[in-house]
Design a protein around this nucleic acid. Structure first.
Lengths: 221, 221
DNA sequence: GCACACTGAATCGTATACGATTTCGTACTT
DNA sequence: AAGTACGAAATCGTATACGATTCAGTGTGC
């Protein structure tokens, strides 16, 4: 009857939404009874939802204490971004042969918009365009498992992903150029390894800019 | 008081065990009440355990029908192995600088044993040695997130991983040679990209051998 | 003044109960 | 004989209830 299905499912979707949107920020204590009351159902489906979120790494759980929204300490950020650079690079390479003219045109347009934003820099808008740009390029990846990992990775980063370029605004210029290069590679049907290397290096560069700013050594991969 | 912690946790561990050991084979219907009875507690903790397993991809869930142990159709196998070749390759490369003399010696010994097994081929034993060999090399990877993904990937393959070389026995000779090469690269402190390429190619070769045998095209990555 | 034991409120963990949904066998119709 | 409608059994989904555990605040002994 209900399109969204079970309450457990609804609870899962709502919690995930609130966490990803930053409504519940890291460290927020997820009290079962409160959430259940808010949503209007009992604690059982909420518990199940939280278990799933736990397995995805969005919340941490402590026995007899409860769940809290998982934070992102610098280490976790490094590790997740490193992993994402690897997986998203592979996804982009695998997707490349299936990227059509339409997508390429869209991507070029997005990059043009990003170039415009450079003159009057708006980090949040730039980051959103950037996210769209990359999503467009890896979406045709024929391996759903890899796509799933990409999505989970970005989810783990939570709200930080919506504002990456707030932290490394100086990367934005190089980023736009690298995008252009990546598009050329894809359009020209370059070997998968080249596309992968470019896509990965692009992410790694942003990560390293972030690390350098915090006085940390660059990622070895 | 209890070392294993909550019943939910126990249920999770037991179910995972039984699935991975092949006790519950793919397609097996996980009936809540039966499992709860078997284990001696109520259905609630069992449900939670299953939710977590679902999020990890070990079981599939259907609303109002129940959970079944996730199978591995050829597509899923391809996708998972492809993903693993990418992630494990990266893990091995990241781990390489931290692989000590001890580990190298152990690895060489394992490979020596594998070479011995070649003369009187035992696919299960060979596969186990192979698993150990690689686990030894990627274990020192400093990025726990990547390690986690490697483990999850192997878990998804379930029991098939314990007998890979049953399906592609002819790969075993080349495999041993490639191991030696990989060890040389690591020992000589080769660049991360070289180690990664070698480790990935090694896995991809096995995957492709498997694919070729089933008349499918090789993996593009 | 400080450490420690105690008490109660908040919260979690699990069992039980019951309504809802699916599934499958059976009888009935054509 | 094949297909369909019906109904009972199996199973799931969720609410409620209650014991168990944690945590904070208070009081007591040293």
């Amino acid at each position: 009857m209900n399109g969204t299905g079970s309450k457990s499912e609804q609870a899962y979707a709502q919690l995930k939404d609130r966490i990803l949107s930053g409504d519940y920020s890291p460290g927020y204590r997820l009290v079962l009874s409160s959430i259940a009351n808010d949503m209007g159902f009992s604690v059982v489906p909420v518990r199940e939802a939280i278990r799933r979120l736990e397995a995805e790494g969005l919340v941490t759980f402590e026995h007899n204490v409860g769940a809290t929204v998982a934070g992102i300490d610098p280490d976790l950020y490094l590790h997740t971004m490193q992993t994402l650079s690897i997986i998203e690079g592979a996804a982009t390479a695998l997707a490349a042969p299936s990227v059509g003219k339409d997508e390429l045109a869209q991507a070029r347009d997005l990059n043009r918009q990003m170039r415009e934003v450079l003159t009057d820099f708006d980090p949040v808008r730039f980051t959103r365009l950037n996210t769209e740009f990359h999503a467009l390029l890896y979406a045709p990846c024929p391996n759903p498992h890899i796509l799933d990992l990409v999505h989970r990775g970005w989810n783990r980063l939570g709200r930080m992903r919506t504002s990456t370029f707030q932290y490394v605004p100086q990367r934005s210029h190089a980023s736009v150029e690298e995008h252009e290069h990546l598009l050329d590679l894809i359009e020209s049907g370059a070997p998968a390894s080249d596309v992968e290397a470019a896509a990965r290096a692009h992410r790694t560069n942003t990560l390293n800019a972030f690390l350098a700013q915090n006085g940390q050594p660059p990622s070895p991969i």
